[in-house]
Amino acid sequence: MNNDFAILIPARHASQRFPGKPLAPLRGADGTARPLIERSWMAACAIADRAKVWVATDDDRIADTVHGFGGQVVMTPAACRNGTERCAAAIDSLGPVAPIVVNLQGDAPLTPDFVVRDLVAALAADAEAVMTTPAVRCSPSLYAHLVGDQAVGRVGGTTVVFNAQRRALYFSKRVVPHVAPERPDGHAHVHLHLGVYAYRPAALAAYVATPPSPLEELEGLEQLRFLETGQPIRVVEFAPLDWDCIELNNPQDIPAIEAVLRQRGIR
């Protein structure tokens, strides 16, 4: 595998659903509270050398917090509309840091290290794909979490459907495909999309040269800009993981994430 990759963690303070989310404290197994952005940085440093990990932000409060725990920061424009645009701006500022750039979104601190490594390997082996991203087959508990959030009008995560060639067909903040409630195996037909992407720098440059697409703006999902312009996204599929990779989308997700931190013994 080509091990030459960098990790960027895009983080903004002005989240509509959860303002100040990157600074939200999460308690680990020993009761220590660390801000979400530090949890995400710790996850990134377990995968790559910390010299190749940067937090990309436009907010001084986040930058000061990252500097406080010894992380690297690259400042990006406030006008960035999503994490992919922020990663593109970071590469413009940093220069050619690596042939593959990983976007580890700042609300996904439970992402396993092998997921990122498999994404990098899949992109290196697939010359046609502009990016790779993971899909995790739902466990019963994760499926229940997604359906439960949807039932009360919250977004509990993003799901993805893909074809036999592992090319993405669609991403949605709804649970897709729809599975009839009486299906006892419903969870096995739904794949959670984790907030991780691996791209080549040229794909990032092409992305920001393209205006936002209609479905991207409707769903609020940046990766749909690639699909609507006919760019192939390679989905890397994973079986249910040993823990639920819940993203921090709403304040109500904090107890579930803290439970996984305790389960895994992460301080």
Rank of each mutant, 00 (worst) to 15 (best):
A108T: 04
F18Q: 08
L142F: 15
N2V: 04
L119R: 01
V53E: 05
P255K: 10
E217I: 05
P19R: 00
P112I: 01
M42Y: 08
R167T: 04
N2T: 07
M75Y: 00
D118F: 00
L104P: 09
R200P: 13
L192F: 12
D185A: 08
V160G: 13
V260N: 04
Q150E: 14
P214Q: 05
P232I: 01
L110T: 02
L119E: 07
V101Q: 02
N250V: 00
V152A: 07
V161H: 09
A6M: 12
E228R: 04
Q150V: 05
I37H: 02
D4K: 09
G195T: 00
V115P: 08
A239E: 15
H191M: 14
L169R: 14
R61V: 02
Y199D: 13
I266N: 11
R12S: 06
V101I: 11
A164N: 14
L227D: 06
M131A: 15
Y143N: 00
E217Y: 01
A24R: 13
F238P: 08
L261N: 03
F5W: 08
E237V: 14
R34Y: 03
A6Y: 10
R17Y: 00
V55T: 08
Y143R: 07
E247H: 10
G95N: 12
A48C: 12
V53M: 11
R137Q: 15
D185T: 03
K173T: 09
G230C: 02
M1G: 13
I47D: 04
A205S: 14
A88P: 06
R39V: 00
L36E: 11
A78C: 12
R267I: 08
A127R: 15
E228K: 05
D92Y: 02
P184I: 03
M42D: 13
A56P: 11
F238Q: 07
D49Q: 13
T111D: 08
W54A: 08
Y207R: 09
V136I: 15
A33I: 04
G95E: 11
L146D: 03
I100P: 07
A33L: 08
N82H: 11
N82V: 02
R166S: 14
C45I: 05
A48I: 01
L215A: 05
V161M: 14
R154G: 02
G153S: 12
E222L: 06
F69D: 10
H187N: 10
A144L: 13
T133E: 03
D126M: 10
G68S: 09
S213Q: 05
E38K: 03
T229A: 12
A125D: 13
F171I: 04
W54Y: 12
L261R: 00
F226V: 07
G156N: 10
A51D: 14
L215H: 11
R234F: 08
R86W: 04
G220C: 01
F171N: 10
D242I: 00
Y199I: 10
P232D: 04
L23Y: 11
R154Y: 07
P251N: 06
R183M: 15
L221T: 02
E228Q: 11
A108S: 10
F5I: 01
C245W: 09
G20P: 12
N3Q: 12
R81K: 13
A24G: 00
L36N: 06
E247V: 01
G230F: 02
A63H: 04
